[in-house]
Amino acid sequence: MSEQELSRRDFIKVTTGIVGGIIGAVVGLPAVYYLIDPALKSGGKEAWIPVGKLEDMEVGKPYPFSFTRVQVNGWERTATSHAGYALRRSEAPNDLLILNSRCTHLACTVNWSETAQAYLCPCHDAKFSSSGDVLDGPPPRPLDRYDEFRLTDDGVLEIYYREA
């Protein structure tokens, strides 16, 4: 388009289009980012959670523990309770099996029963062995484990926790 052919009308049209496009992009692109922002955030906070003193845990008997994590979602703080059992399989300090007591069926909390020698879920009669395997009931998989743990110098067991 040479300058002679560009009429006043066309100039206004083109200018309006360009300026409008710039304004649209300046407002529109940040707006898209603003909308999808929560999906781009990695929420996973991590921590070492003290569970209890090793000397308090009897060998062969699951030791119950629980802890609370505060999650911040936007402007809202939610406290979530977590619980589990630490089992010393032998006298060796590192021979530990730490289970999450959240039932793998529908997330009720399982309890260790001395008489049944199993973890029982009150909701749908699920039954897990001391090693967390499914013995009976609807759960699709064994109890989740806290695989990473460590012992502090003064004998406190800590588990590694990462927010989902």
């Binding site: 980012y33 603003y34 922002d37 936007g74 402007w75």
Partner: peptide, 25 residues
């Protein structure tokens, strides 16, 4: 934004500090 006395102020603080380009919008 949420129009409740408990959260209105906090939700705007969140828009300003927590959301990408919230300050701009």
């Amino acid at each position: 934004y949420t129009p409740s006395p408990d959260h209105a102020y906090d939700s705007i603080q969140y828009i300003m500090d927590g959301v990408a380009f919230g300050w701009l919008v």
